[in-house]
Design a binder for these strands. Structure first.
Length: 415
RNA sequence: GUGGGUAUAGCUCAGUUGGUUAGAGCACCAGAUUGUGGAUCUGGGGGUCGUGGGUUCAAAUCCCAUUAUCCACCCCA
């Protein structure tokens, strides 16, 4: 039977060369996070559907891959069928929610505050396009149990250091705070329930321009004068004048402190700035939010924020929390665009033998001897057109080859 | 969820206003030659032209549907 050999829509196969780049990157990121004192944890890809759906995950809720009940619990004969009755679990769409559940469940065994890092695949049933897949890898660091902005600073610093270690420069860390916009909305006398709606419109400013933002706001039922007023304030907003617009002094101090301190650690390698239009989609964010963008890629390469309410909803005890996630796939995309190739850890050689002319024993013995010398060795039958084979091996990244017939090791000349 | 592009050999792609047996390069296999490290030459295998309908004497080519894929929007990493 002939069947479709493509991976499922939005999912990908990875070739050896692609995996090599990905492994190199995860290695660099892992090392940086470990240096900053974060501990790796793992959680399952599958979570209870209730957790995923009652999470204020914003638009992501519509994108959950749902998993059918199994066995007798899957009753397809019921008259009134809706999705919820057939589904009991789903694939995670981010790493934050599973972490919050993990923490609520394992808290007794974890240090306080807890600094965790994770790498894992998450799933969203979106329409795939450039830099966007249905299964993709995220690298998260989170601090739970730390209410002060030292947590924000540590996360920004560690994430920026990870990107630097990968070789990225000139990126911009944007910082804002959910409470800024909420204060502005309140100061203008608008219903604060409108804040999330307003946030979505404001978020588009960079793309569609302020004129259009006003139109959008009006379309959402906000009157023209208030909309224009809000946009006017937004355009002139800076760390210096936040207090004049009704933002509480504690928020202003925390925000300026984070932006200024983070900038001193950047040392010219990257930028840190207050970005009033930064909002972010997740509903669970309660305070500061951040994002990292690069000029080369029109997409953000990292995003995060404070979500103080999330753990409390799961275990009843309020636990402050902040997280920052690296969009692994976008880093990969960026490096591929730059033609980046990861450094080789061990030089590899190909051991070429003639089929039929030598025993398996002699092949493996010779290979072992080379491994003892520190090479990674792949045994391969020698082809009739040796020259062609050798050029292919060289292109594949082999440092040299060993001819079993001639008993000699030949290194390729480095161009 | 909305809009657009593409679909021909393992890969990258040609294919004229519809017209005989659908092509090239790369890759693969065999042979020749070079006295065997990439070259050169000859030959070979390999395609239901995404799928299903329709128009026509005749469809890879035109029309419709469908699927896949890529890109953009929404939103996001």
């Amino acid at each position: 039977m002939k069947c479709n050999t493509n991976p499922v829509k939005g999912m990908r196969d990875f070739l050896p060369s692609e995996v090599r780049l990905r492994e190199y990157l995860t290695g660099v990121i892992a090392r940086t996070y470990a240096q900053h004192g974060f501990q790796r944890i793992e959680t399952p890809a599958v979570e209870h559907i209730e957790l995923l759906q009652n999470s204020e995950g914003g638009e992501n809720l519509a994108l959950i891959f749902k998993i059918l009940k199994r066995g007798e619990k899957l009753d397809l004969t019921k008259a009134s069928q809706n999705e919820d009755e057939l589904v009991d679990s789903g694939l995670r769409y981010d790493l934050t929610l599973p972490l919050a559940r993990f923490y609520a469940n394992q808290r007794a065994r974890l240090p306080e505050p807890f600094k965790a890092w994770q790498i894992g695949t998450v799933y969203r049933a979106e329409r795939p396009q450039k830099g966007r897949f249905r299964a993709f890898t995220q690298c998260d660091i989170d601090i739970l149990g730390e209410a002060s902005e030292i947590a924000e600073l540590e996360l920004i610093h560690a994430t920026a250091e990870a990107l630097k270690a990968i070789g990225l420069r000139g990126f911009t860390v944007e910082v804002s705070d959910r409470r800024v916009l909420a204060a502005l909305v309140a100061a203008l006398g608008l219903d604060t329930a409108l804040t999330p709606l307003v946030a979505v419109c404001i978020d588009k400013a960079d793309k569609i321009g302020w004129e259009k933002v006003i139109e959008e706001l009006v379309k959402q039922g906000i009157d023209q004068i208030a909309a224009a007023g809000l946009v006017g304030v937004m355009q002139s907003l800076s760390l210096g004048n936040l207090a004049e617009h009704g933002v509480s002094s504690s928020v202003v101090e925390a925000l300026s402190g984070v932006v200024e301190t983070a900038a001193t650690f950047a040392g010219g390698d990257y930028n840190v700035r207050f970005a009033p239009t930064l909002v972010r989609g997740m509903g669970y964010y309660t305070g500061m939010v951040f994002e990292i963008t690069t000029a080369e890629l029109g997409l953000s390469v990292a995003g995060g924020g404070r979500y103080d309410g999330l753990v409390g909803k799961l275990c009843g005890q309020s636990v402050p929390a902040v997280g920052f996630s690296i969009g692994f796939e976008r880093i990969v995309l960026l490096l591929e665009q730059q033609g980046f190739t990861p450094p080789v850890s061990i030089p590899s050689v190909a051991l070429l033998y003639n089929r039929g002319e030598c025993t398996a024993h002699s092949v493996i013995t010779a290979a072992e001897a080379l491994r003892q010398q520190g090479y990674a060795v792949r045994t391969l039958p020698e082809r009739a057109k040796l020259g062609k084979q050798l050029s292919q091996l060289e292109a594949e990244g082999f440092a040299g080859y060993y001819s079993l017939a001639k008993m000699e090791l030949v290194m390729f000349e480095r161009a």
